Amino acid sequence: MDKVLVVTGGSRGIGRAVSLLAAKRGWRVCLSYVSNRDAAEAVVREIEAGGGTALAVRSDVAVEAEIEDLFRQADGLGTLGGLVNNAGVVDYAARVDEMTGTRLTRMMTTNVVGSFLCAAQAVRRMSTKHGGRGGAIVNLSSVAARLGAPGQYVDYAASKGAIDTFTTGLAVEVAAEGIRVNAVAPGLIETEIHASGGQPDRLVRLGPSVPMKRVGTAEEVAAPIVWLLSDEASYTTGTLVTVSGGR
């Protein structure tokens, strides 16, 4: 393998699990973080302890210049072969008629625009049209895109609906250029994002409603992501894989 993988939001939750598993599969991992440097560096140390190569870069995907710097630093590890668009935000539960323009701009800039700009950087490096060797992109969607998240965060759900459409369009756009583009849609997963949205008890409340009667783990989401990055998924593109326990 020995290719470089960029994982946005790679210091915690699903991003951390992806970074660790990808490193075990031979990827050189460049992971981004925004504020928790200690957590990001802990992931790097764990990867290095296992014989892998990793680099943590402070980069906010809501800022185009920081995205450009992230990929420039990733270039120092070698040839880019993959991108996981994992970084994203949620907000406090609210109805649409309670949402402000500031909230909506933050949501769409980070979750949608950031994913577009990261993918653009990856395509410029991986596309055979630009002299690259091909590669794979995996976007993080959510079952919220299908469920709508009424009374909670319709804006977040809408941002993930945009990611689904983005995945479909980009997959076709670069299919003949050696790049595969897929998405994974997690359901209720045990990560810190629920607390960041002011609902630390959300998993306890909603877990019993899942057909499998439990919430998922970050590792259970990381596994299909890393598979989609691999050569084992060489004929898979434009696909949405749902990891939700049947929800």
Rank of each mutant, 00 (worst) to 15 (best):
T217V: 12
P224N: 11
G169W: 06
V138E: 01
G134P: 12
S59N: 10
V181H: 06
V184N: 07
M99T: 12
V34Y: 08
R133L: 12
T191L: 02
D97E: 13
A176W: 07
P211R: 10
A222P: 13
A62K: 04
M212D: 14
L70W: 15
N36S: 07
E66C: 05
L77Y: 12
V44K: 09
T191W: 01
V172D: 09
G131S: 11
H130Y: 15
I225F: 07
P200R: 03
N36H: 03
V204H: 02
A120Q: 15
R133E: 13
I193M: 07
S35V: 09
G198M: 06
V43G: 04
K213Q: 15
M1H: 06
S19T: 09
T167R: 00
G245F: 04
L117C: 07
S230D: 06
G169T: 12
R202I: 13
V174W: 10
V241D: 06
V243K: 13
A183I: 00
T191V: 03
G169E: 14
L77H: 10
V90R: 04
A223Q: 15
Q121N: 12
V84E: 03
L203N: 07
L229E: 11
T109Q: 10
M1L: 11
R133Q: 13
C30D: 05
A23P: 02
V90H: 07
D164T: 06
E232D: 15
T191Q: 00
A158I: 07
N182K: 15
V89Y: 14
V90C: 12
K24W: 07
A223G: 08
A65P: 05
R146Y: 13
I179C: 05
E98R: 03
K213T: 15
A145C: 05
A195G: 14
E177S: 09
A120M: 13
Q152R: 15
P186I: 12
R124V: 01
F166A: 01
L5C: 01
L203D: 01
G81K: 00
G246T: 00
G13F: 06
R72D: 14
E64L: 13
G178I: 02
L55W: 06
D91F: 13
R202F: 14
L229G: 03
P224F: 14
R125V: 03
L21G: 10
N85M: 08
G76S: 15
L229N: 04
Q73N: 11
G15E: 01
L20N: 02
L240I: 09
T167S: 04
K24S: 06
S234T: 07
E173P: 07
V57R: 02
R106V: 00
G52F: 03
G114L: 08
F116S: 02
G15M: 02
L21A: 11
V18W: 01
V210R: 13
A185M: 10
P224D: 07
K24G: 03
Y33A: 04
E46M: 09
V7E: 00
G13M: 06
I137W: 00
T53C: 05
V43K: 02
C30V: 15
L117G: 08
V34F: 05
G51C: 12
V226T: 05
L240E: 05
T191I: 02
G101H: 01
E68W: 00
Y153Q: 14
